[in-house]
Design a protein around this nucleic acid. Structure first.
Lengths: 140, 140
DNA sequence: TGCCAAAACAGGAATCGTTATTAGTTGAAC
DNA sequence: GTTCAACTAATAACGATTCCTGTTTTGGCA
């Protein structure tokens, strides 16, 4: 069993949630996808193996997976939420033309939180970069 | 007439859009609000002076105002879009408990775009920070 | 000033991603 | 095997936003 696999099982055990076949299927769909699928895309992938799953189940599974820290979610405006197995802080960019999402490597976001905190009386809980652009394929 | 006022008129003239009383009212509501109101809040403020305006009109006015560069929009997940007269790049933080939005001062975002661009083949069109936290009043 | 075409508007229906509800199913603990 | 809580499928409901249609307003021009 891989380290990642073990980590997932640990997080389920600690949380009290059970790793059901539907949640497993959502994780598999995320692993097998090439990028940052939407709930709809995950739903379609899961449906191929088990046509009985409902879209609502996918949403609920995703919310559990996010809660226990197995997946990350990313929001862009005018676009459905994207999901991602990678829980390391990283920066994603979305193509405004085709919707494709890719990671921007070598961006140090670790200090974002600590760099902002001294400037606000709020207690920062979340700090993310939302980046949009035009991907090479769409630039033509 | 203030500099800001003149700037708004110029932007309308150049764009070809007309500065109607409804669009004027939306701008006034933004100016008189204490922060970063949602479309709904702007709608309610506008309605006080002219009860006949429709919510759809507010949305359309906001979209025109954004297009010609008079206002900024900010998106947080699980929350309606917020609008802002300030078009200088700046960083806002939203309270996850009460929804209040405040600016985080002294954050240099000017180089965000140029810092990210070398690391991606995308042509970056937009780079923003989305920050959430708990405001002093909600920390109790 | 009065007319006309284009733009903008009001009102309400429609859309879309997401969440809530509810009844039924599963599966682990005894 | 029985029991009970957790989970699921199906579908209704929701909120923010956009779209549509007929009406009103606006700016250009005689």
């Amino acid at each position: 069993m891989s380290r990642v696999e073990q980590d997932i099982r640990d997080k389920f055990r600690r949380s009290g949630y059970t790793l059901t076949s539907q949640r497993r299927a959502v994780l598999d769909a995320l692993r097998d996808s090439d990028g940052h699928p939407s709930a709809e895309e995950i739903y379609l992938a899961v449906k191929k193996k088990n046509p009985r799953v409902a879209l609502g189940t996918v949403y609920q599974a995703l919310s559990v997976l996010e809660e226990i820290g197995v997946i990350d979610t990313k929001h862009w405006s005018d676009s459905p939420t994207r999901y991602d197995l990678n829980t390391e802080p990283h920066c994603d960019i979305r193509c405004v033309r085709c919707g494709r999402v890719d990671e921007i490597p070598d961006v140090d976001l670790g200090d974002l939180h600590s760099r902002l905190q001294p400037n606000t009386p709020y207690e920062i809980t979340e700090a993310a970069l939302v980046v949009e652009g035009i991907c090479p394929a769409c630039r033509t």
